[in-house]
Design a protein around this nucleic acid. Structure first.
Lengths: 184, 184
DNA sequence: GCTTCGAACTTTAGCTTTGAAGTCTTCAGC
DNA sequence: GCTGAAGACTTCAAAGCTAAAGTTCGAAGC
């Protein structure tokens, strides 16, 4: 499919979008909407960038996520399919198939745990680890370019504020209507 | 499928994750990684929250996005399938099917443009517009809760910095390796 | 020791999306 | 006014996902 070369993905600009929101839905804080819209668009763009990079290496974004989970689990880079599924937010069924593909591509191996034959062990191959390293080099380069214009202080504040927001979503329990209430 | 009630989605904490990155990939600026990881996790959480809310209203997130595009296009809330597809980043084929479903649910209507019979016009129904309004009320409530702890100044800075980052991704042309170079 | 339960994974069926091919309409050139 | 090309959508086959129903193994109770 296609992202337009010019950069626009068929979207209005952020400013146009916020104006449209205010036109269609009056009781909306434009500042809140600006932050939320920017967050979501920024994330979409970043994912497009990551996809391009992993595609250039010959793997899919989905495979990259598996490699990432295995690497971050630390040596010896082993996890069970259901742990991986939980980590990536997939169903076990999807995990089975994803591992199938990655085994045939030589990125991971799958073997039964002989000490407990119900379990399966997925292990990163050296090829898989190398692939992750390459992808990581590309990704971190992109990330540094992205944040390049931010001053040291801006980076600090941004990191701190985002972490605070994250903690709020992760620890707050949404009620039936989806409102967040404090827990900590 | 499942998000754990406790809030954790099978992930390590942000701090654990950053430590793991540094262990496995030395030349990485932890501050950059903190910002990027927090951004991506925050976004994932927000999407989970939105999904819960739209599900409570009986529509899918996918359908909500179509409603949003139509409403933001302004009265009379009409768009062609391919415009919608571009706007949402889908293929025309997917758009066809998605519209099929929404027509049977009464959220939109589809008719041929009689002045140019190649074109099709998708138009929001009053039910569709009402659905969007309800979803919007829930979403904006959630968003205000999310940003509740931020001071006025923090909001201003956050909005400004995110907008700057967004402009950078949207206007910069990535090279073959995915690096961003300045254009403006 | 047999049975039952539960855990971990796989299989199956159905849905949504993509990519490619197909249809129908318009428009430009002859 | 015919023909060819381009545009807008739809149809079709295949990939990847979810939910639910197996399957297999281990552990606990009788």
């Amino acid at each position: 499919m296609g992202d337009t070369p010019g950069g626009r993905l068929g979207e209005p600009t952020l400013e146009e979008q916020i104006a449209a929101y205010q036109r269609e839905f009056q009781d909306l804080d434009p500042q809140v909407e600006k932050i939320v819209s920017a967050l979501s668009r920024l994330n979409r763009r970043m994912n497009v960038a990551y996809s391009r990079q992993t595609a250039a290496l010959g793997i899919s974004n989905a495979e990259w996520e598996v490699l990432k989970a295995l690497v971050l689990s630390g040596a010896p880079y082993r996890m069970g399919p259901s742990d991986l599924a939980k980590r990536l937010g997939l169903t076990p069924a999807a995990m089975t198939h994803r591992i199938d593909r990655m085994v045939t591509e030589g990125l991971v191996t799958r073997e039964r745990d002989e000490s407990n034959r119900v379990r399966v062990i997925v292990e990163l191959t050296p090829e898989g680890r190398g692939m992750w390293l390459e992808a990581m080099r590309l990704a971190s380069g992109f990330e540094e370019d992205l944040l390049q214009d931010l001053s040291a202080e801006e980076r600090t504040v941004l990191g701190e504020v985002l972490t605070r927001l994250l903690r709020r979503v992760e620890h707050a329990q949404p009620d039936a209507g989806g409102r967040l209430s404090d827990l900590d």
